[in-house]
C-alpha cells in the first residue's frame, strides 16, 4: 500500500537555474535554465555534445554542478528534498543485471531499499503486468529482444513509483516500429503515473510527439532556449500525421539549426 500511495503525491517540479557543468575545464553544459512543471513531460533536444545528457544527469544527481542550482518542488510549489525512490532512470543500454531474472531485475530498486522479498516481488510482478511482460519473469535479459529489455528497464525505473522519470535516449537503439510502440506506451505510463518526465532524444519527432514542451539546447555547449509548447489534436497515429505535428517539428528544427549555423 505504501508503494501505491506514492503516485498520489504527484510529480516533482524541477527548477534549473544557470546550471553549468565543467569537465576538466571545458564546459559540458553552459548556463541552462528551465522550470519543469510538476507532472509535465519535457523533451530535450540538441546537437550531440550539446549537454542534453549532462543536464539530465545533473537533474538526477549523477553529477555535480560547477555553478548554478537545481531545486525540486512538490505539486503546491513548496521546496522538497528528493530520496532515491523519487527518481527513476531509464538508459539507452537498459543496464539490466545479466545474471538476474527479469523479475529480480525489476525488484532490484526495492531490494536495495530493504523492502521484503514478498512485497518487492509482488510490486515487480504488478509492474511487469502493466508493461505487458507477463510470462517472461523468469527469463534472463539475454533471452529477450531489445524492445523487451527496454520495457523491463522501464518497469524497473517505475517500480518505486517515482515522481520524476528521467529518460536518456531510451529507445535510441531500437528499430522504428518498436520505438513507436514504446513511445505510445511511455506516454500512457507517464499520464497514468502522474510523474514528471524528462526525455533526452535525438529524434525531433519523438520529442514533439511525447512532450508538453520541448527544450532546445542550441550550440556546443548548448544554451537553453525558451521551451516550445506542444499542443496536438491527438498523440496517436492521426496526431503524427497532423499539420500541427509537422509544423511543430519544423519550429524545433529551425530553433536547432539557428544554433548549428552560428557554430559552423
Amino acid at each position: 500500500m505504501s508503494v501505491d500511495g506514492r503516485a498520489l503525491r504527484g510529480g516533482l517540479g524541477v527548477r534549473v537555474r544557470d546550471a553549468r557543468v565543467q569537465f576538466q575545464g571545458t564546459d559540458a553544459l553552459a548556463n541552462a535554465s528551465v522550470h519543469i512543471q510538476s507532472g509535465e513531460f519535457l523533451s530535450i533536444v540538441g546537437d550531440s555534445g550539446g549537454g542534453k545528457t549532462t543536464l539530465l544527469r545533473a537533474i538526477g544527481g549523477l553529477l555535480a554542478l560547477t555553478s548554478g542550482s537545481i531545486d525540486f518542488t512538490d505539486v503546491a510549489g513548496a521546496s522538497v528534498q528528493v530520496g532515491p525512490r523519487d527518481v527513476g532512470f531509464c538508459f539507452q543500454e537498459g543496464r539490466l543485471l545479466p545474471w538476474r531474472t527479469v523479475a529480480a531485475n525489476v525488484a532490484l530498486p526495492l531490494e536495495l531499499e530493504g523492502v521484503g522479498k514478498g512485497e518487492r516481488l509482488d510490486a515487480a510482478h504488478a509492474m511487469l503486468e502493466r508493461m505487458r511482460l507477463v510470462g517472461v519473469e523468469r527469463k534472463m535479459p539475454s533471452q529477450l529482444s531489445g524492445g523487451m529489455r527496454m520495457r523491463v528497464a522501464m518497469a524497473r525505473a517505475l517500480v518505486t513509483r517515482p515522481r520524476l522519470l528521467l529518460l536518456d535516449e531510451p529507445f535510441g537503439a531500437l528499430d522504428e516500429f518498436t520505438r513507436v510502440a514504446l513511445d505510445e506506451e511511455l506516454l500512457s505510463l507517464a499520464r497514468e503515473s502522474g510523474a514528471t518526465c524528462v526525455l533526452v532524444t535525438h529524434s525531433i519527432q519523438e520529442a514533439v510527439l511525447l512532450a508538453d514542451r520541448v527544450l532546445v539546447l542550441r550550440g556546443r555547449p548548448g544554451v537553453s532556449q525558451t521551451p516550445i509548447a506542444v499542443s496536438l489534436p491527438s498523440r496517436d497515429e492521426d496526431g503524427r500525421m497532423s499539420l500541427e505535428f509537422a509544423s511543430l517539428c519544423a519550429i524545433v528544427q529551425r530553433e536547432l539549426r539557428a544554433g548549428s549555423e552560428r557554430a559552423a
Binding site: G60, L62, F91, R95
Partner: peptide
Amino acid sequence: TDAGLREIFGIYRA
C-alpha cells in the same frame, strides 16, 4: 564491473 551498472546501484544508494 560495468560502470553503467555501478551507476544504477548508486542511484538507489546501495
